[in-house]
Design a protein around this nucleic acid. Structure first.
Length: 316
DNA sequence: AGGATTTGACCACT
DNA sequence: AGTGGTCAAATCCT
């Protein structure tokens, strides 16, 4: 479709502007020119995002620059009444809604060793309670449904689905839904500690954190390209014309990367926004770098061509 | 006894 | 009508 060409064009422009900005930053240019470049980059990405959103989402979304703060406040809007409501489940707790739409989700594929290949071992640092299991059409293995143990005490509506993959029974696909509103930092003192601590350090891809981290990281990447910290963010440059090489941005604020740290190498996080397949992409942690870099695989099958730039709010 | 899991039924969505 | 997500009673576990 033509939208694709526009999106690629805009993203390419954004990339070039970012490179330009990098050179400007290393020179003694005025701050004004830097701001102009940053604004150009933001505008370029915004236009690309707008095209994607308007072109592929039935016109339901708006250019993100016109929706300040919408990126971090993940809108769940199960009943589509107030799209500007922050992520908040508590307000209509009384209303029974057995199926929620447009919840931010993450897919995480985890390989479990055959010795202890139980679903429960795919621990992510949070405490979950199983509330259902369902045979899924076309799948050999049932899907298990979990919700946060602290749903009632902390009004935490985070959920996850765990399903063994047909292709490789040692691999579990975990789909996270919603963000934790409980405080994981307090968990070790709570009673589920013993079970949790047997496992590896977490990597709970907390939805809002993940999105905001990506946002922050990318923002840093355009303004601080000379950062020397080892953390890095990369994405395939195929969209920019070179299939083999990754364009890599560095960012320096390692606290922004806490959702990656401790992540098992090779974990694949597939990020989605609601049910829109266009608002999705895979994030994987790789074993090659020292500090759990975030990388988008070059395989186009793994990466929706619009991701991450089509998501509403990674950049501003 | 209290919390976690199982499982059949119900409901929303397509 | 079929499918998937959730509820809630029954059951299991500690």
């Amino acid at each position: 479709m033509d939208t694709d060409a526009y999106v690629i064009s805009e993203l390419t422009q954004g990339m070039q502007l970012a490179m330009h900005l990098k050179s400007v930053l290393s020179s003694e240019s005025s701050s004004e020119s830097k701001h102009v470049l940053i604004q150009e980059i933001i505008s370029s990405y915004d236009r690309a995002l707008s095209m994607v959103n308007w072109g592929d989402s039935g016109g339901q979304t708006q250019p993100m620059l016109s929706r300040p703060e919408s990126s971090v406040n993940i809108d769940e809007s199960p009943r589509s009444q107030d799209v500007n409501q922050p992520f908040n489940y508590q307000q209509d707790e009384k209303v029974v809604c057995k199926k929620r739409k447009a919840m931010p989700t993450w897919r995480n594929q985890i390989r479990i060793s055959t010795n202890n290949g139980l679903e429960g071992n795919s621990d992510d640092g949070y405490s979950w309670r199983k509330y259902g299991q369902k045979d899924i059409l076309g799948s050999k293995f049932p899907r298990s449904y979990y919700r946060c143990t602290y749903q009632h005490t902390h009004n935490c509506m985070a959920r996850k689905q765990v399903q063994r993959t047909d292709e490789d029974p040692t691999v579990f696909e975990i789909i996270y839904r919603g963000q934790h509103t409980c405080n994981p930092a307090t968990k070790p003192s709570e009673k589920h500690e013993s079970k949790q601590d047997n496992y590896q350090r977490p990597l709970p891809p907390k939805s809002a954190d993940m999105l905001s981290n990506l946002k922050k990281n990318l923002r840093v990447s355009t303004s601080d390209l000379d950062a020397t910290e080892p953390c890095s963010f990369s994405f395939p440059s195929a969209s920019f014309g070179t299939a083999e090489n990754y364009q890599q941005f560095n960012f320096s604020n390692e606290t922004d990367n806490n959702f990656l740290q401790g992540s098992p190498s090779g974990s694949n996080y597939f990020v989605e926004w609601g049910n829109d397949p266009n608002l999705s992409g895979m994030i994987s942690t790789t074993a090659s770098a020292t500090n759990s870099p975030l990388a988008f695989p070059a395989d186009p099958q793994d990466l929706s061509q619009n991701f991450p730039f089509n998501n509403s709010g990674f950049f501003i």
